[in-house]
Structures are given as C-alpha cells and as structure tokens.
Design a protein around this nucleic acid. Structure first.
Lengths: 251, 251
DNA sequence: CGAATACTTGAGGCTTTTCAATAGGTGTGG
DNA sequence: CCACACCTATTGAAAAGCCTCAAGTATTCG
C-alpha cells in the first residue's frame, strides 16, 4: 500500500489548494486563531487512490471524514439478492462519510471512478477543534444539511417520471454542483460509466444511452464519449421540470 | 388558528413524555446542569396540527427544528410539470427540518397525515445551548447522520427492482423505525394513503395495492384497511433482499 | 344512513427492460 | 506506432412489468 504524500499541509497550501473545498467553508469564515488553525491544518492528511482501491468498505469503523480534492468517486451498497445500488457520486470539494457519524460504521463502500486525491479529517480531532469554535460547528451542520439536499435531489431523479426527465435533471444538478465549486457551468465530465449512471437513476444503461442521444438530437447537449456540453440550459430545465438553480441554491 | 397548548414543558414532562424522542437523545445522555437544562426545556413549545394544516411550506424561513410527538406527517415537493414527490414520512420521535439548516429556508412542505402534535425547537436557541455542551452537539450530528441513513433507505426502496421488493422493504424499514421508538415490532399503522405510499416508492397506487395483496396471499403480512401485521419478518426480508436490521442498526 | 373518498381488482397499452449484435475507444504489447 | 484485444457505449427488436383507465367495492365522515 502506497504511503500518503503531503502528510501535513501548511496554511498557505490550505488556502491556495482548497479554495472551493467544503473544509474551507468549515474554517475560513470562522475566526480561527493561530493555535486552532494550526490544529485544523495539522490534522489533515492527503491520500492517492487509484481505480479499484476502495477508500472504505461498508461496515468499516468510521474514524475519518473525507473530502475530495481531485478526481471523483462513487458510493454504493448491495442487497442480499446481489443487486448493486449506487448511492452517490462525489466531486472535488465535497465531503464523504457523513452517514457513518451515527453508528461510527461506514454505511456504504466508496471507490474512485478515476485516479483521485482525497483529504482525510480525523473525526475525533475535528470534534475537539469544533467544540471550541461555535461557528465551525455551525458550518459542519450546514455541510451535512447540504448533503441531505443532495439526497433529495437524487430522490427526485429516481422519482416516477419519464426517463428523459431523469437524465435531464441529472445533468442539470451535476452542472450546478460543479459550478458551486467554480467549474465552467456548461462543460461536464461524466466520469462514471453509463452503467453507474443508469443505476444511480434507476434505469437501464441502454435507456440512459438512448436518452442522451435524444437530448443531443434535440440540441440540448453535445456529447462525445464522456465529455458533455450543455448547449441549452433552459431547454434542459424545461425537460427536467425543475427550475434552474431552484434546488440547493434557494436563498 | 388555535393557539398552542403547553407552551413550556417542565422537566418531568420532558423525561416522561419524550422518552423515545430524538430530542431526548439530544440532551439526556449529556451532562446537563441546572441552567442549561432549563434553557433547553424552556425553549420547547408544542403545537397541534390538524389534517391540512401545513407545518411549513417550501421556501419558508427556517427558524425551528420540529420533533414529532404524536401522529405522523409527510414532506413533499412539486416539479414545474406539476408532479408531486413525497420525500419522507415522519414518525413520533423523529426530527423534521434538517434540510433547511444550510440556506435557512425550508426545502419541502410538511403536513400531517392525521391529527399530530409537534414540538418546536428554535434553532438559534438550540445552537446557543449546544455551543456550550459538546456532547449535545455530537448528539445533534448523530441525529442528522441518521437522517441521511433514512434517505439512503428511501433510495434503496426506489431503486430499480421489482415492485414487490420495494413494498416489502418499505414495511420492513417502517417496522424498524417504529421499534426504535419502542413500538411493537409487528404491528404497523399505515397512516399514509396508498397514493402517498406509492408516490414515495415511485410506483402507481394500484401497484402498491396489488403487491400488498400478494404479500398477504403469501402469508407474510395481514392487512385490513390501514392496520398491518407482519406475520413473517424473515419471509419479508427474503423478498426485500435486505437483512433484518442491517440498515441503520449496524453496530 | 348516504355521500364522498379511498381502496381493490381487471384489461389493455406503453414505456422501459432485456437480449443481442455492432460500433467505438482505450490500453497494451509487439 | 500500429495492431489486436478488451471493455464500453450505442442501436435494434422483442418481451415484460408497470401504468393507465375503468368499474366495482369498501370505508369513513358528516
């Protein structure tokens, strides 16, 4: 097993590299003083994950939260019948492992979709620092609250409606999540396979293919391989039935 | 509008009436001293909600968290196309409104399925008390984490699998959520309409009816109107494809 | 007790799935 | 750098499961 690089990040690296990171929100808006900030920064370790290397498995003891720095990941569970269900995709700046805070056991398996870099936050340490900084705790609650909203968005995508709406909504929400982290709003990288995407939407992969083709035929998107461009966000929103930016960005 | 009764609960009432309540978990395990406990108890107000009276609407300013004391509720959103999606059912002891903590706007509309009593926790006050009691904050995180697990269970119910599995899983999870609060493990009250239940599972209400009939024919359940008895939890688990107690109770 | 609502059951149609074959990419080794 | 092999994605045709529509039954509430 490859040992982590960059075990400790200095303050400047934190501010530079993590400008759009959930953890950033956890600390930068808060009035952190020398000691607290050092502790928060000092507890971060960073790790490389090649394809196939699980970050953690369902049932593992939950000691850390994780924040995606680079790449993307998926989390999934299986039923006794052997059916797999993808629960989520995780993009840079997003936090992973919040479902383990109750039982302190991970509730799903997480693996990278591509070579990814992930930041590790020892949960105990995080709590200790947060206990002394109310605004940090408040930010943590906000991050978790946003996680619930993402779950609701997922549920909306799986809801009983035509396949074309589900796919359109997925693209819309994915674009939004990426722009939230400062990416160009119309260029998407579908880093997951069609099969994973289909599973996430409760569709067959062939259906996803067909719907993507349809959306392209109607000139809402342009797609080649896994690179996707949104040509008409409003058209897409009309198909999906959700207002542009209505979800998770309400103010 | 009927004014709330029991605006302030005394300590004994709290301990007696809320033995199985999420808020109970928020405070009782924590070493609360006179002042803190008084503040926590003092900020609780209780309200009656008849059928049709919304607890809050989507977009409303989010000032409170809510805990179900009696009855049951549903939360839902609509798409631009007019399609309704039920996001959750809320049982006694469960907490409502966590999805509003990020934007401080409610992300769904909540209404009772029957005459219900709900406890109100002003979020600001909760934060103030929690800021001084680390273990209280930790409990709050655990409650939210469990909320995420409930969302995952919902996603499993909506996943691409036969209707019979979805319905079986719903009954299994509902029974589990109720036993967690001290209810008899085999007797369920389906307080929602077939239509609501079907919507929650991404099925047609007729399909839910048929599946319930099938489960009854196979002697897994006994159903009359909205009262349901689980005759064979193991058989039900075999149908649903999930281990009994595997979800949210892993240790 | 009667009206309105909710639930069950049946038949037909339709969207999506499944099965199958082809095309397109990616990656590796000669 | 090209060729071959493997994996992934697309497309087509047939089948299946679920949905819609419709009628009938039961239940709740006034």
């Amino acid at each position: 097993m490859k040992k982590d690089v960059n075990n400790v990040l200095d303050l400047e690296a934190l501010r530079r590299g993590c400008r759009n990171c959930s953890v950033n929100e956890l600390c930068l808006p808060a009035p952190l003083h020398g000691d607290d900030l050092d502790r928060l920064v000092g507890m971060l370790t960073s790790g490389d994950y090649e394809r196939g290397r699980h970050v953690f498995n369902i049932g593992d003891r939950c000691r850390n939260l994780y924040v995606v720095q680079k790449g993307s990941l998926k989390s999934w569970v299986t039923t006794l019948h052997g059916h797999v269900q993808v629960l989520g995709f995780h993009l840079p700046g997003e936090i992973i492992g919040l479902d383990g805070l109750d039982s302190l056991r991970h509730q799903s398996t997480v693996e990278p979709l591509e070579h990814s870099v992930i930041c590790r936050l020892p949960y105990e340490d995080l709590e200790n620092v947060a206990a002394r900084i109310p605004s940090l705790h408040r930010q943590l609650l906000r991050v978790i609250s946003r996680e619930i909203i993402i779950e609701h968005e997922h549920i909306m995508m799986m809801s009983s409606r035509p396949a074309i709406e589900r796919v359109a909504l997925f693209l819309q929400v994915l674009a939004q999540r990426r722009t939230l982290r400062g990416h160009p709003p119309r260029l998407l990288e579908l880093s997951m396979s069609r099969a994973d995407l289909a599973n996430y939407l409760a569709l067959a992969s062939e259906t996803v293919s067909r719907m993507l083709t349809t959306l392209q035929t109607r000139n809402f998107i342009r797609l080649s391989h896994r690179k996707l461009e949104i040509l008409d966000p409003y058209g897409l929103a009309e198909v999906s039935g959700e207002e542009l930016g209505s979800m998770s960005l309400a103010d």
